[in-house]
Design a protein around this nucleic acid. Structure first.
Lengths: 192, 192
DNA sequence: GCTTTAATTATACAGTTGTAGATTTATATT
DNA sequence: AATATAAATCTACAACTGTATAATTAAAGC
């Protein structure tokens, strides 16, 4: 019997390794800041493998966004039924934006790539297809889509300011204080 | 009588022109995205003038941030006494983040440069020295600094999402709806 | 064990970046 | 009008970028 899906030197594993390295680098440095050689080195291959497996840097970026967007770290549709959603959302956001944490989410990728027009357009597309839509579907009441978008904006804003830029006192503040301040804000948007 | 401050070919005007062109380009494309030749062309000079007048791209960036930070477009300390501050802040933010508007503020510069470590550090310094401090001084009540920082984060987040990325429906939403949704959010943070 | 085929690398190219040194140009003073 | 001086440019360089082509290497099937 002949096996068709034979993996020599494990092509599938290499592809995954590149994708994972790209996610990390894009999240840290954005589309422009992450070089192909750097991404490839993170996957223990040479830069040419990237183009072999993904065609171009742009296509790689799009695929990375697909992956990071499909599992939201916060405000998941399932969690939207919870009674203390506003507070749990606030505390998840504060926890994740701790400095030492690796920025592992689509927001980092998107925000750090906002200055590049092509990358920003790809990111917008992916956000609209992914999180934004499922979130606004789950929210109740009038102007659900707008409220969802503002919610995402606040999450994004806090993440950049706290984690990337590291604004004082956001970066050094007592996490509990931040949660207490953010909770009523989120509550306004979730419950109206 | 001999005049000491003689300007040949108007050095001062050239310096200002470069600074202004740099502000525009940095706001649009961020630190990495704005090339020195491009910035220089916007001031009708060659790229070498930039280094002559500012020493390096980094120093130019720092000086641009000094200028854009010293005149806040929103949440000015003077306006903080106004009764309807939350609403006027919301409506100013919505008005300014209209797509056609040129991004003329320090937030754009900062956000688009967040992916570059050096640039992000310079930006953080300037924000802390400038707007952040005056704003938290003006806010009343407990945790004023934290509330001010969250306020700035929300402004930043809405700006990126609405203007730079152009998320639907934030970009196309009815401005009045957005103002109505943002006002109670800002009110929570301003008045507690 | 040899051949085939796919995974991986090596080399190279054209473009861009920030910047340095030498040179040219314009202007104010003599 | 000639000269001194500062403004502006020209040329160039070394480092980087994404990517294309050609060569090499390793493993599967016979």
């Amino acid at each position: 019997m002949n096996k068709k899906n034979v993996k020599r030197r494990n092509a599938e594993a290499t592809r995954k390794a590149i994708l994972e390295s790209a996610r990390k680098r894009f999240a840290l440095a954005g589309y422009d800041g992450a070089g192909l050689r750097e991404i490839a080195a993170g996957a223990d291959v040479t830069a040419m493998m990237v183009n072999r497996y993904f065609g171009s840097k742009e296509q790689l970026f799009a695929e990375v966004l697909d992956h990071v967007m499909e599992k939201p770290f916060i405000l998941t549709p399932e969690a939207l039924g919870s009674p203390n959603l506003a507070r749990s959302t606030a505390s998840a956001l504060v926890a994740i934006t701790n400095k030492q944490e690796e920025p592992l989410d689509g927001f980092s990728v998107m925000l750090h790539s906002a200055s590049n027009k092509k990358a920003a357009q790809i990111a917008r597309l992916k956000v609209e297809q992914g999180r934004q839509k499922s979130l606004s579907d789950a929210l109740q009441g009038p102007l659900a889509a707008e409220r969802a978008a503002i919610l995402l904006s606040i999450v994004a804003g806090v993440q950049v300011m706290r984690q990337t830029i590291g604004i004082t006192p956001l970066a050094e503040a007592d996490p509990d204080d931040l949660v207490n301040l953010l909770t009523p804000v989120f509550d306004k948007l979730i419950n109206g």
